[in-house]
């Protein structure tokens, strides 16, 4: 890639006032670096993957409102976590967390556990119990 051809597409990076370092060759064929505002091709890939997360969040919200699942998987997805990450922050086994996905088990959780979930998701306990809040 020639240094003058490094894409400067205004995308996600530019909004955050961030530039990334890219490598290219100058007129004499020597390698050098230049800051880039971003590249549409990869901004699109990133946006598509964020859209997919949004879709999953929306789907889990519906399931939760319909009473099929507890609010835990919804908040987990909202925070871009997976079971491994959440079990790490909760300091509990993954299968224990998975059980909390059931509304019947979730209802019986102790206040301490609920509080820990709320802290992990950076919300309060009322929001944790009712995702409509």
């Amino acid at each position: 890639m020639k240094i003058e051809n490094i894409p400067q597409d205004i995308g996600g990076l530019a909004n955050a006032n961030m530039k990334e370092l890219c490598y290219g060759v100058d007129k004499d064929g020597n390698y050098t670096t230049k800051l880039s505002n971003g590249w549409n091709v990869k901004t699109l890939a990133l946006n598509k993957s964020l859209e997919l997360i949004d879709e999953r969040v929306a789907d889990l919200k519906q399931q939760c409102l319909a009473g099929k699942i507890s609010p835990i998987p919804y908040y987990m997805e909202l925070n871009r976590m997976d079971l491994m990450v959440l079990s790490g922050y909760m300091n509990k086994w993954q299968w224990v967390i998975k059980r909390h996905f059931k509304p019947s088990v979730f209802k019986k959780l102790s206040n301490a556990t609920l509080l820990k979930y709320a802290e992990t998701f950076k919300i309060d306990v009322n929001q944790l119990k009712d995702i409509a809040l």
């Binding site: 890219c22 490598y23 670096t33 598509k48 993957s49």
Partner: peptide
């Protein structure tokens, strides 16, 4: 398409300097 997007992100986004580290 999601998988292809993932390939492109790993190749270009994660601080590769472009072209999946080939330029570096």
């Amino acid at each position: 398409n999601h998988y292809l997007g993932q390939i492109v992100r790993m190749q270009e986004e994660i601080g590769t300097g472009g072209g999946g580290f080939r330029y570096i």
